[in-house]
């Protein structure tokens, strides 16, 4: 029964055009970035960085390298935007449209309903991230050769890999990107459970994210890094370190999963005590 309800929830989610806005935006952004990398100084700067560190640039300016370069800004900017857009819609849009009242005239419990909706949101987050990574790699492969991987993220990673190992790490990093997307989607979902418009839920969740970014960038808060969700979002880049700092990754993942669970419980509680009226 739960699976049937989840299936129906996914029908609702993927039947809406606005669900695909994120996918469309990713494809546009990736195309623009790919062309910019290929035809501006961006590529030559990268080559200079590689040669300055004693590597042969032609061996590492590859589809894998470029796909990670393309992913980094999109993970910071676009992914949270579209995850919160869908997360903020999950409950609040149904309330706004009046369909929630139709659903809640049925004997389904509110907690069960939210669990189904949240699970559908997590499925969406996973698909969003996998499509993002897949298209990044696919597009990069069109213009760049399949060679070694070079990853440079200031303070996080400066590594080179063989094509095989690079692909393995690239795929592994997506597991953590799914957790990132799920966390921010859960925060938007939580606000969506309160009595507010879908747009408000999305904006409040994005505001929470931006406040994290701003506070994290203030030197005074350096010692409180672990309290900021955006700090843990970067743990996917740690996968590209040598050796992989597993303890740090585990800490970040546990924090993000705890945020997901907390957001769900708070959202459930707020929704449970609410009166659903037209």
């Amino acid at each position: 029964m739960f699976l049937a309800q989840l299936h129906n929830e996914l029908w609702k989610l993927f039947g809406k055009k606005r669900t695909y806005i994120g996918f469309g935006a990713f494809i546009l952004a990736q195309t623009a970035m790919l062309l910019a990398f290929k035809f501006t100084r961006w590529q030559s700067d990268f080559e200079r960085l590689l040669s300055g560190n004693g590597y042969v640039p032609t061996e590492f300016i590859s589809a894998l390298t470029v796909s990670v370069v393309m992913l980094m800004p999109q993970i910071i900017l676009l992914m949270p935007l579209y995850a919160t857009l869908v997360g903020g819609d999950l409950v609040a849009k149904e309330y706004e449209d009046g369909t929630l009242r139709m659903i809640l005239s049925r004997p389904i419990s509110r907690v069960r309903l939210l669990l189904v909706k949240w699970a559908a949101g997590i499925v969406f987050a996973a698909i969003l991230v996998l499509v993002l990574g897949g298209t990044a790699l696919g597009f990069a492969k069109l213009l760049f050769p399949w060679k070694g991987m070079f990853v440079f993220a200031p303070g996080m990673a400066f590594s080179i890999f063989s094509p095989g190992e690079g692909l393995g790490r690239f795929m592994f990093a997506h597991l953590f990107l799914v957790v990132n997307a799920s966390s921010i989607l859960s925060v938007a979902f939580m606000f969506s459970c309160f009595n507010m418009k879908p747009a408000a839920a999305t904006i409040v969740a994005l505001s929470y994210l931006f406040v994290n970014v701003v506070m994290e960038s203030i030197p005074f808060f350096d010692r409180f890094d672990n309290w900021f969700i955006t700090h843990h979002f970067r743990c996917w880049l740690l996968v590209f370190q040598n050796p992989v700092p597993w303890a740090q990754i585990l800490q970040s993942e546990i924090t993000l999963l705890a945020i997901c669970a907390t957001a769900f419980v708070v959202g459930c509680t707020a929704f449970y005590v609410r009166d659903i009226k037209s």
Partner: peptide
């Protein structure tokens, strides 16, 4: 209910 709401796109 007075204004039956559905998933119009389905």
């Amino acid at each position: 209910f007075e204004t039956p709401a559905f998933y119009d796109y389905l």
